[in-house]
Every structure is written in structure tokens, then in C-alpha cells.
Computed example of a mutant assay.
Amino acid sequence: MAHHHHHHSKPATVTVQDFIDRCREAGLRRTKALEELIATLLESGRPMTLAELAASERLASQCDKATVFRLLQRLTEKGFVRRLGLHERAAYFTLLVPGRHQDYLICTECGTIEPVKAPCPVHELEEEIRVKTGYKNLYHELEFFGVCPKCA
């Protein structure tokens, strides 16, 4: 059964270049803003809000908030970025890196997001679904909602 857990091994190091190449294959124009956005998300390694991204040092000098938002929309549509959270104004964005998987806990009161620090029970299920259906590149996204200790 051990082979089911190959995606828990150290995540493959994905470079900004790898990511840009995939974006271009998907028909996204390579712009400096796109590169900086991907670099910022990749370096951060955690979900970031639009405001955080627009204000980050790489992007603040590059483009305005509207541009960052449009890029995030395109990246989300193409499946390169995952949008987390409850509503537009408090949405967080994170890169979907192949083989790197994370489930999140989201507070319905203050909107903070934290990664779930527990083994994911869905991986076995995912494997079973893959075998039964023949689907390729199967992945899932889990978000748990609740009230964080601070708000509770």
C-alpha cells in the first residue's frame, strides 16, 4: 500500500520557469507581471490575498491591483491557481503545484486560512476512484469551514 503515498514525499522543486512554460502551453501570455506573480506565490508557499499580492515587493512596482486580479482569474480558470476562502473580498490564492497537496481550514468569522496539519483521508479514496474510473491526473481540494479559537 506504500505506493499510494508517493505524493507525500518531498515535493518536486518546481521552478518559476516550469510554471511559466505550462502557462504558455495553456495559452497565457508571458508577461513580467505573470512571472512576478508566479514567483511571489511560489516563494510564499502559503495562500495570499489579492491585497497581499498587489502590495508584495515584486508586484507593487510591476502592475496595479486590477492587473493582478485579472491574472489570478486567468490562472484560476486554467487550473494553475486555486482560489480559497468564502467570498471575493477575502479570497486567498495559492499555486496548484503538481504532486504538492494541501487541505485548508477556514474561519467563517475572520476568514483566516490555515493548512490542515493532519494526514489526508481522501488520498486512499482518490486512488480507488482513479482505479475504478480510469480518470487521469486526479486531484481534489478540501476546505474545512469553522470558527477559529480566536473568534470562538
Rank of each mutant, 00 (worst) to 15 (best):
F93K: 01
I20S: 10
N137G: 13
I113K: 01
A118L: 15
L42T: 00
G99N: 13
L42C: 02
T40D: 04
C110E: 02
C110Y: 00
C63Y: 01
R70I: 02
E124Y: 02
T112G: 03
K132L: 14
C148T: 08
T133G: 10
T108E: 09
V68N: 05
A33S: 09
G111Q: 12
Q17I: 13
D64E: 14
V122I: 14
Y139V: 10
E35L: 06
L86D: 06
Y139M: 13
E35W: 05
K117A: 08
H87Y: 10
F144W: 05
A60Q: 04
A118I: 13
E109F: 04
L28R: 10
P121W: 03
Y104Q: 15
F69D: 09
Q102P: 13
R83V: 07
S61R: 12
P47G: 01
A33C: 12
H101V: 15
H87E: 09
R22C: 04
S61E: 12
C148L: 10
A33M: 03
K117E: 08
A60P: 01
E25R: 02
E143W: 08
L75Y: 00
A54S: 11
S56T: 02
R100Y: 15
A51I: 05
D21T: 09
D64M: 07
G27N: 15
D21S: 10
E88M: 01
V131R: 06
G134C: 00
K65E: 12
R74E: 04
A54V: 03
P119R: 11
M48V: 00
T31Q: 07
C148D: 09
V68R: 05
V131G: 02
F69P: 00
F145N: 08
H101L: 15
E141M: 15
C151V: 10
M48F: 00
G146H: 15
L41I: 13
E25H: 03
I113V: 11
F145Y: 13
T15K: 07
E77L: 11
L96T: 14
P115R: 15
E88Y: 04
E36C: 06
E36V: 01
V116S: 15
P121H: 03
E43A: 08
L138G: 11
F80V: 02
A54C: 04
Q62R: 13
G146C: 08
L53C: 00
K32F: 11
F144H: 06
Q73L: 06
T40E: 11
C107W: 14
S61F: 04
T108D: 03
C148W: 12
Q17G: 05
H87D: 11
A152N: 08
